[in-house]
Amino acid sequence: MRFITAALLSSLSMGAYADNYQALTAEGAALIPPFQQQLLATVKTAMQSGGPVKAVEACQLLAPQIASEHSQSPWKVGRTALKVRNPANAADAWEKQVLEQFAKRAEAGEALADMLHSEVVAGELRMMKAITTGEPCLACHGKNIEPALAAVIDVGYPQDEARGFALGELRGAFTLRRTVDDGND
């Protein structure tokens, strides 16, 4: 009888955990669109006011602040990639593994726009959503960057790796994390 009671309690606990996990995943996923929209609006405004050079400057100065503004406690929001421009955005081991999985899934024909991965890692709910290289990205991240713009990028980001992308390729991912270790989140 004790075994049956323990098994029943365990299955109820797992059901509550699954419901909580789904709710937290939905909560995290809801933070991505406004973050993405503000980043894109910032770059678009900079492009309109001063072209790609202004867009690079806006990214360098404003993107970290935008990420901070969208990191609503207890969530931390950011961006990462396998090839980063800003070393502060370098992927950790888990993020790198997920980005590599996204790349393999894209090669197999899955749409990048649909790629979202979440799991609990070391007491944190970690999430990533793929970013597709769009037309506006190509001026600064494409294969044919204007030499004057490349020179500006080289000054601001001497370790830049985020070049050579083609339209529709995996550019990187939005990355989110929050603590879930006490079971009451």
Rank of each mutant, 00 (worst) to 15 (best):
A18W: 03
A18T: 08
A18H: 07
D19F: 12
N20G: 06
Y21S: 10
Y21R: 11
A23V: 04
A23E: 09
A23F: 03
T25S: 15
T25A: 15
T25I: 08
A26W: 04
A26R: 13
A26D: 12
A26N: 11
E27T: 13
E27N: 14
G28H: 06
G28W: 02
G28E: 07
A29C: 00
A30F: 05
A30I: 07
A30C: 07
A30G: 07
A30L: 09
L31H: 05
I32K: 03
I32D: 02
P33D: 06
P33E: 11
P34A: 02
P34R: 05
F35L: 15
Q37G: 02
Q38L: 14
Q38A: 03
L39T: 10
L39F: 08
L40S: 05
A41V: 02
T42L: 04
T42P: 01
T42R: 11
V43Q: 09
V43Y: 05
V43R: 09
V43L: 14
K44Q: 14
K44D: 14
K44W: 02
T45P: 03
T45G: 07
T45A: 15
A46H: 07
A46P: 08
M47Y: 12
M47N: 09
Q48F: 01
Q48C: 02
Q48G: 07
S49D: 13
G50N: 12
G50L: 10
G50I: 14
G51Q: 10
G51I: 02
G51P: 03
P52Y: 11
P52F: 08
V53A: 15
K54W: 05
K54I: 01
K54F: 11
A55W: 02
A55R: 06
A55P: 05
V56P: 03
E57L: 15
E57Q: 15
E57I: 13
A58K: 04
A58P: 04
A58H: 05
A58Q: 02
A58S: 08
C59V: 09
C59Q: 05
Q60K: 15
Q60S: 13
Q60P: 06
L62W: 00
L62D: 09
L62G: 04
A63Y: 04
Q65I: 09
Q65Y: 02
Q65D: 07
I66K: 06
I66N: 07
A67Q: 05
S68M: 08
S68H: 07
S68F: 04
E69N: 05
E69W: 01
E69L: 01
H70Y: 03
H70M: 00
H70L: 00
S71W: 01
S71D: 03
S71L: 03
Q72H: 09
S73W: 09
S73P: 10
